[in-house]
Design a protein around this nucleic acid. Structure first.
Lengths: 199, 199
DNA sequence: CGGTCTCTTGACGGAGTTCAAAGCTAGTGG
DNA sequence: CCACTAGCTTTGAACTCCGTCAAGAGACCG
């Protein structure tokens, strides 16, 4: 089982950095990573705890959210198969998590702890590069998302989101997509109705 | 002149990664970087062009913005002395810039082009690490900023901003701070009035 | 000074929220 | 296999925060 999961990760590495993985690097993964299974609603990262792992989703889906003073939650990131998810703030800084990561479906993930992450970066230059590119891409995408949040209305943001992530729209409940877009479920419902009428 | 500018960068590197710079690494910087001076309103990065440089501000200040369909601009990032600024989307991907970077004051910057950036990363492990940490921190901060944008009203966002960046509030025009926070100058003016009354 | 850019203030309008209720759907247990 | 429940989505009506339009005050620079 874990073999096919690692194959998915390797495939992801190759496509991300655009280079085949040298043969020598292949074996070491199974020593550094372990496999974990979650039920729907299981918590992968808990707010207030130190987050010591990052998760590569191989089956199912998860999302991260922040909880505000009123107790309301706000979706930050979704992760389907082939995505990494965690609280990188806590993971990198060693401070308490400010986000929660929760499974949306029965989920399988490859888990990498801090030490293994460090070791993977130190011993496999390809992995080091892979992770750097991932963060760079994530930063660039996030900056763009924020730019759009500040410059476009909810209808445009949803249109762009559903064009960019049709798979998310299919699998993720609408009230979470609303939260991700910074609006209420009622508003998204009306927006969808509006868009359906236009066509 | 460039000596003291590089000293500022070195100081920044040390504080970022929390390690002193090995003596051997010090000399190579002057070969890779060059100094450039900008007047107020000069353009460092132009939307639609390929962005081939990143800028380390040593004097003055700059900001980046995006221009929407209506021609309105939206501030993305501010950079005072000791900050890097550029269009990293364009710089990393090689595609046309989607942001503009403009000087807010007479500004001096150290300029690093793509080749020199690559060379700096390849030959100076300390610089490689420095830049990785910078991007990680930037990602984490941006994710938090977006979370706050989606969960708090304009008044709270401005309060937090002015607490976190009192230097920005002092030196950057109010209408740009409003834009950065995703609101109109008129609204920020009213918010400031409101906050002043509360005290 | 005179012009342009920035900030403030007022009145009105609109996108999205809140509150409430009803319909829908999927999962659970009898 | 159907019935029941809990959670999700939809819809309506009133409200609120922020945007828009407009005008004036203040600041900065040639």
């Amino acid at each position: 089982m874990i073999i096919t999961m690692i194959a998915l990760l390797k495939d992801n590495i190759q496509r991300t950095i655009g280079l085949p993985i040298p043969a020598g690097n292949c074996t070491s993964f199974s020593d550094l990573l372990f496999e974990k299974t979650f039920d729907k609603k299981d918590i992968l990262v808990e707010e207030g705890q130190n987050c010591k792992h990052i998760y590569f989703i191989t089956e199912g889906s998860c999302y991260s959210y922040i909880t505000d003073d009123k107790g309301d939650t706000h979706a930050i990131q979704f992760a389907l198969e082939g995505y990494w998810i965690s609280d990188l703030y806590s993971f990198f800084s060693g401070k308490k998590s400010i986000y929660t990561v929760e499974a949306l479906e029965p989920t399988k993930a490859l888990v990498l702890n801090k030490e293994s992450f460090q070791k993977a970066c130190d011993t496999m230059p390809i992995f080091d590069k892979y992770f750097r590119v991932l963060i760079q891409n994530a930063f660039v995408a996030l900056q763009y998302r924020l730019a759009k949040t500040n410059s476009e209305d909810a209808e445009h943001r949803y249109s762009e989101f559903s064009k960019l992530h049709p798979d998310f729209v299919q699998r993720i409940p609408q009230y979470l997509i609303a939260s991700y877009l910074g609006i209420k479920p009622q508003s998204l419902s009306r927006i969808r109705k509006e868009l359906a009428n236009k066509k």
